[in-house]
Write a protein that binds this DNA or RNA. Sequence first.
DNA 1: CTGAAAGCGCTAACAA
DNA 2: TTGTTAGCGCTTTCAG
Lengths: 337, 337
Amino acid sequence: MRDKKKRASITDVAKRAKVSITTVSRVINSVTTVSSRNRAKVEEAIAYYKFKPNVNAQRLATGVNNAIGLVIPGYPGIFYSFYAIELIRGVGHACETLRLDLVFHISNANNPINTHNVGGVIFADIIENHTHVEHLVHMGIPCVIINNKVKDLDVGYIAIDNYSGGKQAAEYLFGLGHKKIATITGTLTTQAALERFNGFKEYLDQQGVLLPDEYIYKGDYSRRCARLAAEEFFGRQDPPTAVFAASDEMALELIAYLLEQGYKVPDDVSVIGFDDNPACLYGPVGLTTIRQPLFEMADESVRALHAILQGKSKKQKHKVLIPDLVIRESCAPHTKA
Amino acid sequence: MRDKKKRASITDVAKRAKVSITTVSRVINSVTTVSSRNRAKVEEAIAYYKFKPNVNAQRLATGVNNAIGLVIPGYPGIFYSFYAIELIRGVGHACETLRLDLVFHISNANNPINTHNVGGVIFADIIENHTHVEHLVHMGIPCVIINNKVKDLDVGYIAIDNYSGGKQAAEYLFGLGHKKIATITGTLTTQAALERFNGFKEYLDQQGVLLPDEYIYKGDYSRRCARLAAEEFFGRQDPPTAVFAASDEMALELIAYLLEQGYKVPDDVSVIGFDDNPACLYGPVGLTTIRQPLFEMADESVRALHAILQGKSKKQKHKVLIPDLVIRESCAPHTKA
DNA sequence: CTGAAAGCGCTAACAA
DNA sequence: TTGTTAGCGCTTTCAG
């Protein structure tokens, strides 16, 4: 809408302070070459009008755009995942401290989003969005992808080594003497979940431990699927003695099921999760898990983009963080037979 | 940053199409008075350059700003609440369909946020932000507050009747024959949690049911506090037979505790929540709760703001939705003694 | 149906 | 240290 009572412009301020608009611009932008006398006058006028520079005009004039877009995949349930929440939190926080505008986009395959008017874009994930990223790259808009090592495009990425994470989980369980190990995977169409699973499976393979199909439940990070997996694993005659869940949420639901059924955790069944979701700290059993530094990843990605926007960096940053094992109480050595 | 390879501008398109920029502007804005011949030429040129109009220039020229800000209070844990997530989801969704830019702000008392460059602002809550809202109102920026009936400022609000919600919970439990009823409240510094508590308490008062201090745990919506409350309520010699938790999350943690301790839900203890958080559908016991239409509230608030931005509406909208009881399995009639 | 020209509010040479 | 001036990319009268 047109502002009824137009907001004061730089011209109004300049008039009242009896200086040129350039001088006003200078004090707005903290340029030092302004006499303290003039500065005072300008500041008075700014205060008088409660003047705020028009950001659109600034952006148009400078060509710099201090806004970044965050694209979150829009599939149902995404907002209930620790993953997405941590990223939003991390990106939001970083933007607030760097004084960047955060423009939020929920992507949706059939409703291509408009990430114009931002200086750069962060993708929380790249599912269904590859062509979108391509397009932005083509337009010269810098992109940073979180948790997906995109090598075929000129974009930055900040990921974690999911393969290592899965492997660490397997290693820990195996080291505890478990042989009958099951897993509930994440959404295997994502690179992250797939690598996590591969790291897990391949380590076990190398140790000569069989991971039969009945011990693999292809999940989607939801509590619901964790319960279904639990029913499947522990409904059969030869249940596993340890389970690796690809997210803490799933691990928690699994533990809840186990306790309901009268199993003891970790005495009867060891459970290891993935994420290090603090919401899982207050459950009945402290959850052993693989810590994924989501918040830091988000933070890093904003900083990477910021560096590019400021022209401080010209090349895209690629970074892979290593997740680590957090031992609490949900896993125990396998003793029986 | 300055774009290295500058994006094509309207001038480039005009040149290639051999028309004036005015004509290009017309096709961009779907003005009908353009010959189909010219339209075709312009469209070709637009496609050729993959031209996107510069939003800053558009906003500067028209004075309309199709971006809205969403302010989320920044206290720890906010991002783990169903409340905030639903609002973000709802606002995000509405913005996507209305083609508004959503600028996301995490407010923080000591770091006043910059909600400039938006046409209007939605506050997910108003804690610590009253002066901020005041300031925006003064600047002529329309604001809509969610879940807080602000009457002393010219702002819109979309809220739910929390008093009624609390009352309904009490009514249901009382109707089931319970007399020893406890409650875990939300953060009582918020209007919403306070009204919810008042509705609950006053109904019980009216029925002559005592709500002693030992049966009131002042919580903060976290699972952690729910567990502490549970330990307090059920650690004493005279535990309640029913509990109203001001959020489903807390109700769920309470139930988890109860099951761990060998209580049966709802046979030994009835539990009612608040929210209708779908994440609570897959627990061991279907949760009876008071449904709070957060998503709709968010949606409504965006539409209200949008109407104002479009000039279709001039007066601020005030709306109070009524929450409703959703009966599942976590409450049972009180039979004993 | 089309185009020339005047801004929108601000920044950034360039002069003074 | 200051001001003049020319844009940034687009919309919008207003003539034609």
